[in-house]
Design a protein around this nucleic acid. Structure first.
Lengths: 222, 222
DNA sequence: ATTAGAATTTAGGGTGGACTAAATTATTTT
DNA sequence: AAAATAATTTAGTCCACCCTAAATTCTAAT
């Protein structure tokens, strides 16, 4: 059975990829929640994705789906576009950190190869978007990414922020205001047990951050 | 009856506007041809546009449609986006003259207000796109446009190209190659009757152009 | 091993937007 | 004015994508 890859299918593939990064299979409910779609509707789409030629997912009833190589390729292509667009919107059009996601979600389904390669070029083939998320290269290979959370560090320790994992606009604006963005260097001067607060020094400024915040910040030790 | 303005409806409104610039009413067939859609399908959409609240077109069976004020407003909004995008793609992303149209057709349905105003700002609030077509301002008012065709001039005469009305890629590339683009100044040195050829001088270069070409070039005399 | 509750799928419906084929209305020609 | 032709609309389908309600299947607790 044939299939036409549309905006909707691209969103599904992206969501499946995001949910199953660690090898798990994406469940109907998890997809439904992430995509804000009724579970019953998800089932229908998963069937279509599985019956596509070539199939984009492996689908076993009641056991969720995993991406086929073809599906993963398609997902990575969209993720590349999304992150390139976020970078582009931030760097070249002056969109703020918390605005880029929504706009990129719309544009990613629409831009041409040419547009994609043009902004890639103008940005100097970036490897990470404004949030620090890795951008797959032209061969759809993901650059290696930092996976140590700021919340896991203990003083004394110096670190550089690599990535911030948050989608909430308020949190993003808060982090930006405190310069808690990829590239910033910081030093941990104290750890408070029980509440998990960290005292850190950044730009000669001291601040105390709770684990609700530090959990979302991924760093590289140095 | 309610209506949701989608990509498709925007394309219809744009097409209706383009066909009826001179006060004529847009016929079903003309719209069908322009949009590459079967006439029967057009009828259906026109009904929906007419029954929208507020109505976007006036529709009388067998007599085509005209835009209501609401419909014209919507059409101008898309046209503004389209032409701003064409200008932006050309000036800032290095798209060639003949590539911008297609890409703009995709993006125009998707970009946010913010995106629109950002590129408008970066471009310095341009009044004309790369083809010389006028860009409606923020209040959706069209700047005045030149309406004298190069084919109507006779020597001796000096003129400046204001606008080029062509959608064919081959023709666009030809014109660009000869610097027959908005802003270029030229001088008419000879007119050949019967075939209508004009001999013109542009950048110290002489060339002879037939009316098939000069008809598409709009100028201002000087 | 049964059963309650959660997850998932089936069944049936709706909307936007396109299609073809057939019927109708306008227009033009004779 | 009638007939031929062109333009338009109706009627009937189809597909992608979403929905709700009801049925099913899986899982976990007893």
């Amino acid at each position: 059975m044939k299939i036409t890859l549309t905006h909707a299918t691209e969103d599904y593939l992206k969501a499946i990829y995001a949910i199953s990064v660690d090898g798990a299979s994406a469940s109907t409910n998890a997809l439904a929640e992430r995509l804000k779609i009724a579970p019953a509707s998800v089932t229908g789409m998963l069937k279509r994705l599985a019956e596509a030629s070539p199939p984009h997912v492996d689908y076993r009833k009641h056991h969720g789906v995993t991406l086929t190589p073809e599906g993963e390729r398609a997902a990575l292509k969209i993720i590349r576009r999304h992150r390139l667009l976020e970078t582009y919107l931030h760097e070249m059009l002056g969109f703020s950190w918390d605005e880029v996601h929504e706009e990129a979600c719309l544009l990613e389904h629409v831009i041409s190869e040419r547009f994609e390669s043009r902004i890639d070029e103008l940005l100097g083939h970036p490897t990470h978007d404004p949030h620090g998320d890795p951008i797959p290269d032209l061969n759809l290979v993901m650059p290696q990414e930092a996976s140590v959370r700021l919340s896991a560090l203990r003083p004394p320790q110096k670190a550089t922020i690599q990535r911030v994992d948050a989608k909430d606009g308020d949190l993003l604006r808060f982090l930006e205001g405190k310069s808690l963005v990829p590239g910033s260097k910081l030093e941990i001067s104290a750890y408070s047990p029980f509440d998990g607060n960290l005292t850190i020094l950044l730009n000669q400024q001291e601040m105390i951050l709770g684990p609700t915040i530090t959990r979302h910040i991924f760093i590289e030790e140095n």
